[in-house]
Amino acid sequence: MHRLFLTLSRVMAILGGFVLSILILIVCLSIIGRSANSFLHTDVAQSLFPGLAQWLIDAGVGAIRGDFELVEAGMAFSIFAFLPLTQVTVGHATVDIFTSWMPERALRILRALIEVLFAVVLIVIAVQLFSGMQSKIRSGQTTLLLQFPVWWAYAGSVLGAGVAAVVAVYMALARVAEATTGRSIVTDELGAEH
C-alpha cells in the first residue's frame, strides 16, 4: 500500500520535473530569440545581410511570445505535482525539539492528529481550487498576451492538488493506524537522500 502511494507521488514529481525542464528550455530559447532579434536589428546585421536579417525577423525570430505566462502556468502545475511526494515522504519542515521528550505512544497520537489536519487542509485546498477553476471557466478570463483561458492553467493545478489531497488522506489513515495498532507503516524512504 505504502509503495503504491510512494510510486504515485514519484510519478507526479517526475511529471512536474519534466514540466519544470520544459519551462527552463522555453525561457532559454526566449533569451536566445530575443538576443538574435536585437542583433538582426543592429546596423551591422542590416548592412551585411539585409535580406536575410529581415527575412529572419519576419519569420518570427525573437523572444517567445508570452514566455512569462507559460512559466507562471507551468510552475503552478509543477509545484502542485511536487506536493504529494513531500507529503508521503514526511518532507515538511518541522520543529522537533520540544516533542522529543514525549513517549512514543503520545508521539504517535500527535502525528496522527497532525496528519489528519493536513489532510483536511489539502482537501479544502483542492476543493476550493476546483471551485476557483469553475469560476474562471464561467468568467471566460484569458491571459494578457497569449490569451489562452486562465482555467486551463487552473486545471493542471487541480490535478496536482487532487493527488496531493488523496495522498494526504492515505497518510492520515496510515498515521491513525500506526497510533491505534502501534505498527510502523510510513517509512522515511527518501529521507536519507536529503
Binding site: M75, Q128, L129
Partner: peptide
C-alpha cells in the same frame, strides 16, 4: 477565508519570481 483559497494557492505557486526557487535547486 474559503473564498480566498479559490485563487490564492494558484497565484502563490505561479508567482514568476518564485519560480527561481526550483530552478536553483535543480
Amino acid at each position: 477565508a474559503l473564498a480566498r483559497l479559490k485563487s490564492e494557492t494558484y497565484t502563490t505557486f505561479s508567482n514568476y519570481s518564485l519560480s527561481i526557487v526550483p530552478m536553483f535547486l535543480l
